[in-house]
Simulated scan of single mutants.
Amino acid sequence: MEDFKELTKAEEQIMKELWDMGRGFVKEIVDRLPEPKPAYNTVSTIVRILETKGFVTHESFGKSHQYLPKISKEEYKKGITGKLLTNYFDNSPKRMLSYFLEENRLDVQELDEILSIIERNK
């Protein structure tokens, strides 16, 4: 997990849009962001940082670049969950689930759904 690169909030917001779009130009990303929209140059800078970090790649169309995710949402989710599990729950899914139960972040219906998933995967 040491080599897992975590996204900043701004980077994560851009990645969420790219994951949803599949690919896009900076202007298209900006158009999808909620108000108040960041400046075009801000989004462009974040996308280039994401490319440097290895999350995004691009295809050139003249002077324009269309960006696409290099890492899937599932890959990132797996990495971020693994980091959470390792750093905060001593690599114990049981401790993590207990935490969510104790903090009332799971209701009875969600717990029943989890139990059904466990039963299906036995």
Rank of each mutant, 00 (worst) to 15 (best):
M1G: 14
F4P: 10
E6H: 06
L7S: 11
K9L: 09
Q13P: 01
Q13N: 08
Q13I: 04
Q13R: 02
I14L: 13
K16C: 14
K16D: 05
L18F: 14
L18M: 06
R23P: 15
R23A: 11
K27Y: 11
K27A: 01
D31H: 13
R32P: 01
R32A: 02
R32N: 04
L33K: 02
E35L: 04
E35K: 06
P38N: 06
V43R: 04
S44T: 09
L50Q: 09
E51I: 06
F55R: 00
F55M: 07
F55A: 00
H58D: 11
E59R: 09
F61Y: 15
F61K: 05
P69E: 04
P69D: 12
K73L: 12
K73A: 13
Y76M: 10
Y76Q: 03
T81R: 03
L85I: 13
L85M: 02
Y88F: 06
N91K: 04
S92G: 01
R95G: 01
L97Q: 01
S98P: 07
F100A: 11
E103S: 04
R105K: 14
Q109R: 12
E110M: 13
E110D: 07
L111T: 05
L111K: 06
S116W: 08
R120G: 06
N121D: 12
N121E: 12
K122M: 08
